[in-house]
């Protein structure tokens, strides 16, 4: 691997840092950043403050003033409305999509990068064709297929097409990171008498870890974020994922805006926990989505 993981660049290789000493502060950039801070921070502040406001307080108190009488009732209400089920369903969908994508895409990447013969390039082109095709475009036939498979209103109905449409980008990312594995290493494996299975497991997979992390992050994001497939392909309450739950909370809460915003705030908690637990690989994964 010639490329260090991006976030490590700062700490592990101080020599590559930009010179620190002789710079005057960049006022323009600082002001811009502060402005953006306001744009991002204010809505988040309003969201959090409103979510602890009593329902009656929302319409009378100003949206920016701190709540006179903060309460967690709205959160309790969201949990009572089955929010934990939605979280569990989303977790299943997200993990399954990420795992499915990794299990399918990594061997494809290996084949594309290392196989002899023209078909390997053909396989890559086959996947790349789907690069910019939005999953939305196929929701009608997917609905038809899922219905025929008897999978309507199951989590598998969300998992399968979501994973399929994450594959092109993932194959692309993986081939990129696998091409960086040097020929010497393959030859060393060959000297050990390793066949393609062992080469794959002992060399390709371990050295593609950053790529795999990126792919897993990307696929999880797609699964976590999706609303259209759950909207069309599932119905019942016990198959509901967070995004659909939020969408349906909308009608349910009517004038109870604080209750709805509490559900929204709650929906960020799983990712927040994930971020705290696996901050580095998450950030690296996201940076990796952009390639270099």
């Amino acid at each position: 691997m010639r490329r260090p993981a991006p976030a490590r660049a700062g700490t592990a290789r101080p020599a590559r840092r930009r010179p620190r000493a002789p710079r005057r502060p960049n006022w323009l950039a600082g002001t811009g950043a502060l402005l953006w801070l306001l744009v991002v921070g204010l809505p988040v502040y309003v969201l959090l403050v409103a979510s602890v406001r009593p329902r009656e307080g929302y319409l009378s108190e100003g949206p920016l003033t701190p709540p006179a009488d903060p309460t967690l009732d709205n959160y309790v209400g969201a949990v009572r409305n089955g929010f934990l089920t939605f979280v569990a369903n989303t977790a299943v969908v997200t993990v399954a999509v990420a795992a499915l994508v990794v299990v399918l895409a990594v061997p494809v990447g290996y084949a594309v990068v290392r196989a002899r013969g023209r078909w390997a390039g053909g396989v890559l082109r086959f996947f790349l064709l789907g690069l910019a095709i939005p999953a939305q475009a196929v929701v009608i036939p997917v609905y038809l297929i899922i219905r025929e498979l008897g999978l309507y209103d199951t989590l598998a109905a969300i998992i399968l097409p979501t994973a399929a449409f994450a594959l092109p980008v993932c194959v692309l990312i993986l081939t990129g990171s696998m091409r960086d594995i040097s020929e010497d290493l393959y030859e060393a494996m060959a000297l050990d008498g390793a066949g393609s299975v062992r080469t794959f497991l002992r060399l390709v997979v371990p050295l593609s870890r950053p790529g795999i992390a990126t792919v897993a992050t990307y696929a999880s994001l797609q699964a976590w974020n999706g609303l259209l497939f759950p909207l069309i392909l599932t119905q019942s309450r016990d198959q509901r994922v967070i995004t659909l739950g939020l969408f349906e909370f909308q009608g349910q809460y009517r004038v109870d805006i604080p209750g709805m915003l509490a559900a929204v705030a709650l929906s960020a908690v799983p990712i927040l926990i994930l971020y705290l637990v696996a901050r580095r690989s998450l950030v690296n994964g996201l940076m990796g989505v952009g390639g270099k």
């Binding site: 499915l100 399918l104 895409a105 061997p107 494809v108 290996y110 084949a111 594309v112 290392r114 196989a115 002899r116 078909w119 390997a120 396989v123 086959f126 996947f127 789907g130 994973a163 399929a164 594959l167 092109p168 194959v171 020929e183 393959y186 030859e187 494996m189 060959a190 390793a194 066949g195 393609s196 080469t199 794959f200």
Partner: peptide, 16 residues
């Protein structure tokens, strides 16, 4: 070095 055959790409391609 060993070269992977087309079978490696098959599951992913079929699923896709």
């Amino acid at each position: 070095p060993a070269r992977p055959g087309a079978a490696w790409a098959l599951p992913g391609a079929l699923f896709f």
